[in-house]
Computed example of a mutant assay.
Amino acid sequence: MNTIALACRKAFDHGKGMTGAAFGRASDSTLEKHAEYWGRWPNRTKEDAYRALHFLRTFFAQCSKKPDALFKDGTTLGRRIGFVKQYADRSAAHLSLEHYEFDNLDLAHVVAALTLVGSIVYSFDNGHPPEYFNQIDQAAHDAAVALFPDAPRVRMFEDMQIDMQARLCWQWGEERGIQMLTEQLPYAVSWF
């Protein structure tokens, strides 16, 4: 739980430097330069790369805020990120004895969203298999079952092709794609 919380805080950091918030403020010209690089690979176009990058910029601009702003944001994922970031800032860093109430679904939603974001980025790298994240999910599940044989046999992405779902997020258009990540993703992975 601490590791996931710290990773969430880092991915959705609202500070300066190499943060989610900084990427959320990236200029169109910066996105165009990256899209040109991503568009060099076979079966990838600069236009598709720009759409994917624009989607990611919108997503990080929306989700990389201070916890109070995320609570006011109104999205399910935003509130979950806010709770997990608060936990990471205080409890995971051993700065507080306060109780922070969130559960496995909150963490699963954050992990699933980051997985789809990672898959979007990964899909524009050359020479990598599209089933890469599903293979990681299967290996993680197998390792968890080996360590905890009595635990429920629930795999997060058992019924989803991660690369296809990630691609649909940016291909559907930003409004539908963001809605998928922020609201519908727990239902899509059957963790509701």
Rank of each mutant, 00 (worst) to 15 (best):
L107N: 01
H99L: 08
A112T: 05
L95V: 07
L77N: 10
D103P: 04
H94T: 07
F83W: 11
Y100S: 10
H109W: 05
D106K: 00
D89G: 14
V111G: 03
A112M: 07
Y100F: 15
D103S: 11
H94M: 13
F83E: 08
A112Y: 06
R79T: 13
I81F: 08
A112P: 06
V84Q: 01
A88R: 07
L95Y: 11
F83Y: 13
H94D: 14
T75H: 12
A108T: 14
A112K: 04
T75K: 08
L107I: 12
V111D: 08
T76P: 01
L77Q: 04
L77W: 04
A93C: 10
K85Q: 13
G82W: 07
T76W: 09
G78D: 06
K85G: 00
A113W: 00
G78M: 05
S91I: 03
D89K: 05
A108I: 09
V84F: 01
E101I: 00
T76D: 11
R80W: 01
G78F: 04
L77T: 02
G78V: 02
N104P: 03
V84T: 14
N104T: 14
R90P: 00
D103K: 06
D106M: 00
T76I: 13
K85P: 04
Y87N: 01
H109Y: 04
D106T: 05
L95N: 13
H94Y: 11
D89F: 11
A108H: 08
E101N: 09
K85C: 06
R90G: 13
V84W: 00
E101W: 02
S91C: 09
V110A: 03
E101H: 04
R80N: 10
A108V: 09
A93I: 01
R90T: 15
V111F: 12
T75D: 03
N104Q: 15
K85I: 09
T75L: 11
F102K: 02
R79I: 12
H109T: 04
L107T: 12
R80C: 05
A92Y: 04
V110Y: 02
R80P: 03
A88M: 12
A92E: 07
R79C: 10
L95D: 12
D89T: 09
L77A: 08
L77Y: 02
H109P: 03
K85D: 07
H109Q: 11
G82V: 02
A88Q: 05
E101L: 05
